[in-house]
Design a binder for these strands. Structure first.
Length: 453
RNA sequence: GUGGUUGUAGCUCAGCUGGUUAGAGCGCCUGAUUGUGGUUCAGGAGGUCGCCGGUUCGAAACCGGUCUUCCACCCCA
């Protein structure tokens, strides 16, 4: 039989894992610096935790786990006979794979509210699963990398999160544009245009702006039955760029004015330090129809930056504030704000721009090669010394020179040490630089010195 | 979930409108050669043509189903 992985899942080769970990490590070190702590939640959650949190569409995309034991014995018989999958489900499956990290986190906060201190700052890097149909850059198993604060509505955290974006992408070497908006500004626009009741339709249309253009947005809103007058009003507002303009437009929208004020406060915190990346107020940023209620963020690769012109990639990060994150689980009035890093997309961008470091600390530094069995045993002793000095080292098991060199070149190791017996019966070690082909016989202590830098 | 697309050796792919024992390059293994950095030469192993069923005297090729790949839509990350 031909081995394969399930649809939408993949294996990761050593070189890929090294690169992925480089991204995670860079992100983690920034999280830790800003005072966030890691948590983990189980791969599976109860379906009662998961169902109904992502809409009807989301429920379909949940992977369900069959109950153990004789699950059909306990299945709902009527539903089974009628082939009613939805009804049968609840009697044969009570667990599912996590669909994102936010809902499990909300469950976590409610369950452990007495063990954690608010504001609670956590980060979480774990895979999630979706039974979506796979396509380019979309898998059924992928990592999410979330950082959130719950239990405070201070805008200091919005500023902090954007600073973290700025620092992470600077460290990774990607020049980005960090777009900032506020859902209250969007609501203000709907209110100012007199279509507050069609806020959702408007938001969904605006969210597609990048994809379908201004005319497309106009058409979409028309289709949703928004009046032409309101549409032209909204389009006019979308082209405004300063908070002062919005303040004027929102004279009759309390929510809109609140949004302007929130963004001003955000800037009071944020502007104390000059960011390396572009941070732009973007009134057209909508972030889908998700649960966001305040500030929203999205990160894009800056295609105007030198060397990045050709990068075609959607958003590589996003997030925002959501009130009542935990209300679903019975804890009201707890506000949260968080952002997510799109690890897989960041990986692709870094690959395209060749931004991964060449010499990774987790890679093998030196490969020992021995001439014969006698030398092999001696080489193992030398190997121990090199490893004790903290250098990543390995010994090749066979003696055939051709195979040794072939292996060394195929694993891309920078140094080799050839261990040979001399005529007087002692052993000598020769350090070889694979790239320059330099070779020198030297004492093992010297070799260690050489390899250390 | 809808529409399309892909599947032949470990890898990248040929294989005409159905017709003998299914091929190439690379890789792999063995031996020689090279006083040592993937050399050269010779030989070799490896495929139920994704899987199941059908049409046919005959299927890798045609038809149906299924799994997989990639793409668009829906939605989303």
């Amino acid at each position: 039989m031909k081995p394969s992985t399930p649809k939408g899942t993949r294996d990761f080769l050593p070189a890929q894992v090294v690169k992925r970990n480089y991204i995670f490590d860079t992100i983690k070190s920034v999280f830790i610096k800003y005072g966030y702590q890691a948590i983990e939640t189980p791969t599976m959650e109860k379906l009662s935790t998961l169902m109904g949190k992502y809409g009807d569409e989301g429920d379909k995309l949940l992977f369900k786990i069959l109950n153990n034991g004789d699950y059909l014995a306990d299945a709902n018989e009527d539903a089974l006979n009628n082939k009613d999958s939805n009804k049968v489900l609840s009697s044969i499956a009570s667990k599912g794979l996590r669909y994102d990290l936010t809902v499990p986190f909300a469950r976590f906060v409610v369950m452990h509210q007495n063990d954690i201190a608010f504001p609670f700052k956590r980060y979480q890097i774990q895979p999630v699963w979706r039974a979506d149909r796979p396509q380019k850059g979309r898998y059924r198993e992928f990592y999410q990398c979330d950082v959130d604060i719950v239990g405070s509505d201070s805008l200091l955290y919005e500023a902090e999160l954007v600073q973290m974006y700025d620092e992470v992408f600077t460290n990774l070497g990607i020049k980005t544009i960090i777009k900032v908006n506020n859902r209250k500004i969007l609501f203000g626009m709907a209110e100012a245009a007199g279509i507050a009741n069609q806020f959702m339709d408007m938001t969904v249309a605006i969210d597609k702006l990048d994809k379908i253009g201004e005319q497309g947005v106009k058409d979409e809103m028309e289709r949703k039955g928004i009046s032409t007058e309101a549409i032209s009003n909204i389009l006019k507002m979308l082209n405004m760029s300063t908070l002062t303009e919005f303040e004027t437009a929102f004279a009759n929208s309390e929510t809109g004015l609140k949004g302007v004020e929130e963004l001003r406060t955000f800037h009071q915190y944020f502007d104390l330090k000059t960011p390396y990346n572009k941070v732009e107020f973007t009134p057209t940023l909508a972030r889908g129809l998700s649960y966001y209620t305040g500030c929203i963020f999205e990160v894009e690769v800056d295609t105007n930056a030198e060397g990045q012109e050709k990068v075609k990639m959607g958003s590589i990060g996003g997030g925002g504030r959501y009130d009542d994150l935990t209300a679903n689980f019975g804890l009201k009035g707890v506000s949260g704000v968080g952002v997510s890093f799109g690890a897989a997309r960041i990986y692709d961008v870094m690959e395209e721009l060749d931004l991964f470091p060449k010499n990774n600390a987790s890679e093998l530094k030196v490969l020992f090669l021995a001439e014969n069995q006698q030398a092999h045993i001696q080489a193992f002793g030398l190997l121990n010394q090199v490893r004790s000095a903290g250098i990543n080292a390995a010994l090749y098991p066979e003696f055939k020179y051709k195979k040794q060199v072939k292996y060394a070149t195929s694993i891309n190791v920078p140094y080799m040490v050839m261990v040979e017996q001399t005529e007087d019966g002692t052993v000598q070690a020769e350090l070889r630089n694979v790239a320059t082909k330099d070779r020198t016989v030297m004492h093992i202590d010297e070799i260690i010195e050489q390899l250390k830098d």
